[in-house]
């Protein structure tokens, strides 16, 4: 261990720690501010007097948000989307990655198929043609429009495939010689050995589905079918509070700003809940992809 005792070095240490702490705080302060606003009464919130501590403390803003039936419906749609979408994603990722991880001798046609996958990742048909395809399939206003077009995340397939290739081949060869099928090899050898990679990709897929709002905006022409984040957009970006079910009388008592703040906080809570897991797995996930040697 190197010990530094010179004055300039100690000065650097102090300012470095202060800088890092300041930057980290900067990442958190906007959220704390919005949280404080969401717990504040009408006067201080509308007048912009709240900084990082609620004034005229009230929970009514949250009552408004959580009591809104439109909000609850969008929450349910998002919940369905995450559960079904992630299950479909992970099933297809594993099923595509396993054959693609084999050599062309074991899986004839592999060399062509891998390029079918990679080209599909590199060349984007674009927003409009994709929209027209989804519409002509009759998926508008259906949950399928949010789940099916992105059912195969190709980059994740490639990460999974690279992970599968690290698994020693002797394991599967002895199983195959003993008469096991590829299904059994995948289920009993590959999957148990790949749990960290699967956990990582599952979390990524779940956050992606939860945070996605754009496909809800374009594929749901009826705003009653909006998932959570798309609904959030109507409230906090288009500033349409009637969607929350707030009446003009209530706005005499409550602050629209505080209600929007409560809405933002409620939409963020699920991410904060899974964040400890995210943090544990995403570093390994990044390593999976970016610094593969």
């Amino acid at each position: 261990m190197i010990r530094e005792n010179s004055l300039s070095s100690r000065l650097f240490d102090v300012s470095n720690h202060l800088f890092l702490a300041g930057f980290a705080l900067l990442c958190l302060l906007p959220l704390i501010h919005i949280f404080a606003v969401s717990l504040s009464g009408r006067g201080p919130a509308n007048g912009g007097f709240v900084s990082f501590w609620p004034l005229d403390f009230t929970l009514e803003n949250y009552d408004q948000v959580i009591g809104s039936s439109v909000f609850l419906r969008s929450l349910f749609i998002s919940f369905q989307r995450v559960v079904l979408g992630v299950s479909l994603n992970m099933t297809l990722i594993v099923l595509c990655a396993y054959p693609l991880s084999k050599s062309p001798l074991v899986f004839r046609g592999r060399s062509v198929l891998i390029w079918v996958f990679v080209f599909a990742m590199l060349f984007d048909g674009g927003l409009i043609p994709t929209f027209l395809v989804v519409r002509s399939l009759g998926l508008l206003n259906k949950l399928g429009a949010l789940i099916l077009p992105g059912a195969v995340p190709i980059f994740s397939v490639i990460l999974m495939m690279n992970f599968f290739r690290e698994i020693p081949r002797e394991l599967e060869e002895s199983a195959l010689i003993d008469g096991a099928s590829h299904w059994k090899v995948l289920w009993h050898i590959y999957l148990p050995l790949s749990l960290p990679a699967i956990a990582t990709l599952t979390l990524f897929a779940a956050v992606g589905h939860w945070n996605n709002w754009f496909d809800g905006l374009i594929y749901m022409t009826d705003s009653n079918n909006y998932p959570m984040q798309t609904y959030l957009r109507t409230v906090v970006v288009e500033l349409d509070l009637t969607r929350v079910g707030v009446t003009p009388q209530e706005l005499l008592r409550l602050s629209d700003r505080a209600i929007r703040g409560a809405q933002i906080i409620v939409a963020t809570v699920p991410i904060l809940v899974v964040y400890p897991f995210l943090q544990r797995y995403f570093i390994s996930g990044i390593r999976l992809g970016a610094v593969k040697e």
Partner: peptide, 20 residues
Amino acid sequence: MILPGLLFILLFRYLPMYGV
């Protein structure tokens, strides 16, 4: 194993490419 994923890719990635 690869068939379902391949069908999704053909439908939602390659058909839009034709759509250009």
